[in-house]
């Protein structure tokens, strides 16, 4: 039944029943639906993940309520579970990691974006990306056999001599502990801070620099007072991104933190983090309540990283989209 094409088709609008049949026969509609299904699988997986964490932690949530978050007893034998030591350890080690990684990463990013010639900068960034690809368990291996002995014999005694009067640097020196975990985390997140901050700094328009230099500013003054403030939001984004990584980091922390669920003010004392307790106790958890308490810890960790990642992406988007309009 060959007739002249309808006006809609002739105009290039593939609508209407005839066009639909043509699209189905040519495979377009089939391809669209198939790919749509696979795209929706991604959404489905994310929904299932949240749903599984929620339902499987039901027992612990009902038993302990919100007090789970600030109770500090973790005693599987007596079925007493509280998340505080782990939340505390996670936050302390991540904060320590950031404290070391932010200045180091920002400095390196400034060098790569502002000072180094483009080709050198690209090559060095390639190496930084490789550093980001090193598996977490390798950092743990180096942490256990190099950093821990070094901390015990050199760094911790020195810190204790210099700062032992504060509560942060007291107690016996084991080598393992929050400080060591924070150091390992710092090394692990530095590459992320460098590569994202560098990109954000590169997106700062050239006028910004030139204006400062034209007013007689030195190179450093132009960078620190004109370029960095302009990229501030994006740099904050890179820091949040790194923080989210640090919070969820498992293996390296598990291997050096000391695995002791006690809150201690001293950074030398062994601690515990959410990810580490999951790694150590999950496959050995006996009893439903124990398992569901562990899964609730997973839920807490998920929510922490979820909020931070959302903030980070928003901040990075804000700066890069603003800067890329007049990108040099």
């Amino acid at each position: 039944m060959a007739t002249a094409p309808t006006t809609a088709e002739a105009a290039g609008f593939p609508w209407g029943p005839r066009a639909l049949i043509r699209r189905v026969r040519s495979g377009d509609e089939l391809a669209r639906l198939t790919t749509l299904v696979f795209a929706l699988v991604v959404v489905l997986l994310a929904v299932m993940l949240v749903e599984q964490l929620w339902t499987n932690s039901a027992e612990a949530r009902h038993r302990f309520g919100l007090a789970f978050l600030w109770s500090s007893t973790w005693d599987p034998v007596f079925n007493q579970f509280g998340a505080l030591p782990f939340v505390y350890g996670t936050l302390v080690t991540s904060a320590l990691g950031l404290l070391i990684a932010v200045p180091l990463g920002l400095g390196a990013a400034i060098f790569l974006a502002e000072l180094a010639p483009r080709s050198l900068s690209d090559n060095l960034t390639f190496l930084i990306d490789l550093l980001a690809a090193v598996p977490s368990v390798i950092y743990g291996l180096l942490g256990v056999f190099i950093l821990v002995p070094l901390m015990r014999t050199e760094i911790q005694p020195a810190l204790k001599r210099a700062l032992g009067f504060t509560v942060l640097f007291q107690g016996p020196l084991y080598g393992i502990g929050s400080l060591t975990a924070g150091l390992v985390l710092a090394v692990m997140i530095v590459p992320f801070i460098i590569s994202v901050s560098r990109e954000v700094l590169l997106a700062v328009p050239g006028d910004q620099r030139e204006a400062a230099l034209a007013l007689g500013a030195t190179r450093w003054e132009a960078t620190w007072k004109a370029v960095v403030p302009y990229a501030r939001t994006g740099i904050m984004g890179s820091i949040f991104l790194a923080l989210a990584r640090a919070l969820g980091e498992t293996m390296a922390v598990t291997m050096v933190i000391g695995n002791n669920p006690r809150i201690s003010a001293s950074l030398f004392a062994p601690g515990y983090s959410i990810a580490a307790v999951l790694a150590n106790e999950f496959s050995e958890a006996t009893g439903n309540l124990y398992l569901s308490a562990l899964i609730e810890l997973g839920l807490v960790l998920f929510l922490l990283t979820f909020v931070l990642n959302g903030l980070a992406r928003l901040l990075i988007l804000l700066t890069t989209s603003r800067g890329s309009v007049v990108q040099t």
């Binding site: 991604v42 959404v43 980091e249 990283t305 992406r313």
Partner: peptide, 28 residues
């Protein structure tokens, strides 16, 4: 609308700590 949601959830999944992915796989 659909690509926005898919992109958003993909970025979300990408940020989930690997140990939590482990719990998910354990559960299902």
């Amino acid at each position: 609308a659909v690509p926005f949601v898919v992109r958003y959830t993909a970025d979300l999944l990408n940020g989930v700590p690997s140990i939590v992915i482990g719990i998910f796989a354990y559960a299902v």
